[in-house]
């Protein structure tokens, strides 16, 4: 059975690598074929044609697109992602710094959202008429409907008018809360539904009949069974977290990948766009992989199906 899990992980890892390469190659080709490049703004500033051509050659923009792609892949093998035309620095260094901030934010958001959402979901799912559910459900419905951008703006407004939350640049509180509250609410709703299904299943009734104490029944047996459907969502959650963090990074001046990517796109910074796409795709692939492995460990049937 262990070999089944190992081969499952290897297959998933290969798919993840293919995904990352496809995403970054498509981003590179898209921005390379887009109208205008990093040098075209120079034409408006009255720089002579010879300088423009020289800059194009220096930035590697004179080569045909397919050669660009080949060179980029060759560089990737040496961990060389090219030089940003906007910053004049190696892309790898820029990405590493920004990716660290995005990863830090994402990890904290996932942690907060899971720590709040999953236990609450287990309680509300097992006692839909209880007082915890009576308080949690309406709050959850409102928070699920609160897009991270709206949440971030509301928190910023609250911070600006009361001063209770720190909004210094680089402080985590506002972006982390704006992203984790709707996510916690979503996880609570999902976990609640999954536990409600698990509690009604015949095997739990049988376990209860055999005298397993209610606490253990809920927090061990039902929780484990409901984990499968909820873990399946985590792969999607990471993608939507990325989408939400794009606007939140702008609103809260968080120095993450989203802002870097947007600025790189507008400046037609070919190598930086490709690098950002590579980093973003790697995060999503790793998140999906982790969710798949966790699901496979909770429910071994997953390895056979895939």
């Amino acid at each position: 059975m262990t070999s089944g899990l190992a081969s499952f992980v290897i297959r998933r890892l290969a798919a993840a690598c293919l995904f990352v390469l496809m995403v970054s190659a498509s981003a590179l080709m898209l921005v390379r074929l887009a109208p205008g490049d990093a040098v075209s703004q120079l034409t408006f500033t009255g720089v002579d044609q010879a300088t423009i051509d020289a800059t194009r050659v220096r930035l590697g923009l004179d080569r045909p697109p397919l050669v660009t792609l080949r060179d980029w892949f060759a560089g990737l093998l040496r961990f060389d992602l090219g030089t940003s035309s906007q910053y004049g620095q190696p892309v790898a260094g820029l990405i590493a710094e920004r990716a660290w901030h995005t990863a830090r934010l994402g990890a904290i958001v996932l942690l907060i959202a899971s720590a709040i959402g999953l236990p609450l979901g287990i309680i509300t799912g097992s006692r839909p008429g209880g007082w915890v559910a009576a308080i949690t459900t309406p709050i959850s419905i409102v928070l699920v409907a609160c897009p991270p951008l709206v949440g971030a703006l509301a928190l910023l407004l609250f911070a600006a008018s009361t001063g209770l939350i720190s909004i210094e640049p680089g402080r985590l509180a506002v972006p982390a809360l704006a992203l984790s509250l709707p996510l916690a609410a979503m996880l609570e709703r999902l976990q609640s539904r999954a536990v409600a299904d698990a509690v009604a299943a015949p095997d739990l009734v049988a376990a209860a009949a055999r005298g397993i104490p209610p606490g253990r029944l809920l927090w061990v047996h039902a929780a484990r069974q409901s984990l499968g459907p909820v873990l399946g969502i985590y792969g999607i959650v990471i993608g939507s977290l990325f989408s939400g963090s794009l606007a939140v990074e702008f609103a809260t001046s968080w120095p993450g990948l989203g802002r870097l990517m947007r600025d790189a796109l507008v400046a037609r910074d070919v190598w930086l766009v490709a690098g950002c796409a590579l980093a973003g795709a790697a995060f999503i692939a790793l998140g999906n992989l982790a969710a798949d492995i966790a699901r496979a460990m909770a429910d071994r049937r997953v390895t056979e199906r895939a």
Binding site: G239, R262, L265, I284
Partner: peptide, 21 residues
Amino acid sequence: DFLLALPGAYLVLVLRGFLPL
């Protein structure tokens, strides 16, 4: 599945970004 795995906001941003501003 390939498109589904991409975060939607980024997909729109990249595609929008590579057209004239």
